[in-house]
Design a protein around this nucleic acid. Structure first.
Lengths: 151, 151
DNA sequence: TAGTGTCTTGATATTTTATAACTTTAAGGG
DNA sequence: CCCTTAAAGTTATAAAATATCAAGACACTA
C-alpha cells in the first residue's frame, strides 16, 4: 500500500504530547518521547516487543518493563491506545481530549482508523444503561477492509 | 454476590451444543463437551489455564494445546466467545445463531452480560461503512458496574 | 548546598498466555 | 476390516506481561 510521508504527523504528535504534559505538569521524558515517536513512525499497530527491538538498536538492549512502563504512561495520558485484539498499540489521533478509542482495523493492510464519533459513544453508553450497567469505558474494534484495499 | 443455581443453564448449553453439532455434522467430543461445561460452570470469564487446571484434576495433567484446540472449536462453532480485554472466555448466550459477541463487563463482580441487540450491530456496521470500511466482525467490550453491585 | 522524598529507569527473574511441530489414537466411510 | 482423516497427546518454545528490588535523576526546602 501507498505510504505517505509521515514526518509531519509524527512531529505534530510529539509536539502535542509535549505541550499537554507541560500543561498537566507530567513528565514527558526522553524515553517516553522516544517510545511515542516509535509508535507513530510505524503508523500501524505496533507490539511492545517491536518497540523494544527498535529502542535497543545500536545500544544496550532494554528490558520489557522499560517499554511497558513508557506505554502505561502514554496510555494514561491518552497519547496511545491499546488494540486489544492485536496486543498492539497505536498513536491517538486526538490526544487533547482523553477518551477510549474506537477503531476500524483493515485485515488486509493492517491500517487502523480511529473513530472519534460522539454519536457512537452515545449509543454505546446508552446500551450499557439499557442493560443496567453504569459506564466506565469501552473498547470497540471493528475488523474489515479499508477503502484503499477494496480498490 | 448472590449465586443462583447454574445447573439448569449449564445443562441447556450442553444440550444445545450437542444438537447444533449434530445438525452441522461437527464432532462434539467428550473433551469439547467437558471444556464447554467448565466454561459454563464458572459462569464468569475463565482463562485457558484455569480450564487447564480444572481439566487436569484427578488425572494426568493435560497440556495447553489440548485446551486451546477445544476452545478454538467451541469459538468456531459459536458456543464460546473470547473476551479480549480479559484474555478469557465465556459461554455464548445464543449459540443457535453465529455472531460476534458484544459484552458488558462488571468491574466489581466480574460478571459478563452479552448483548444480543440487533440495533447495536446495525450501528456498528453503519459506522464501518461511514468510514469506508467493509464489515467483517467486531468486538465491543464495555466496562462498568452492574445493577446488582450498585445496590 | 546537603538532605530528603518522590518519580523514573535499570536489571533480573518469572509468570501468564499461546502456538509450532510431530506422534499417537480414535472415528467413520467404503 | 482397512484406509483415510480428524482429534488428542506430547514436547518444546514463543510471545506478552509483570513482580521485585536497586540505582539514578529531579525537585523541594531548610
Amino acid at each position: 500500500m501507498l505510504k505517505h510521508n509521515h514526518d509531519e504527523c509524527i512531529e505534530n504528535a510529539l509536539t502535542a504530547a509535549q505541550e499537554i504534559c507541560a500543561a498537566r505538569d507530567t513528565r514527558f521524558t526522553p524515553l517516553r518521547r522516544r517510545v511515542l515517536e516509535l509508535v507513530w513512525v510505524k503508523h500501524e499497530p505496533i507490539t511492545a516487543y517491536e518497540i523494544l527491538d527498535l529502542l535497543s538498536e545500536g545500544q544496550k538492549r532494554v528490558a520489557p518493563p522499560t517499554v511497558y512502563r513508557a506505554l502505561d504512561f502514554l496510555i494514561e495520558e491518552g497519547f496511545v491506545h491499546r488494540i486489544e485484539s492485536l496486543n498492539s498499540f497505536v498513536g491517538c489521533s486526538d490526544p487533547a481530549h482523553k477518551h477510549q478509542g474506537h477503531f476500524l482495523i483493515c485485515t488486509k493492510c493492517s491500517n487502523v482508523t480511529e473513530m472519534n464519533e460522539q454519536s457512537l459513544h452515545d449509543v454505546i453508553k446508552a446500551a450499557a444503561k439499557a442493560n443496567g450497567y453504569s459506564y466506565e469505558n469501552s473498547i470497540l474494534e471493528i475488523a474489515g477492509i479499508c477503502e484503499n484495499c477494496r480498490n
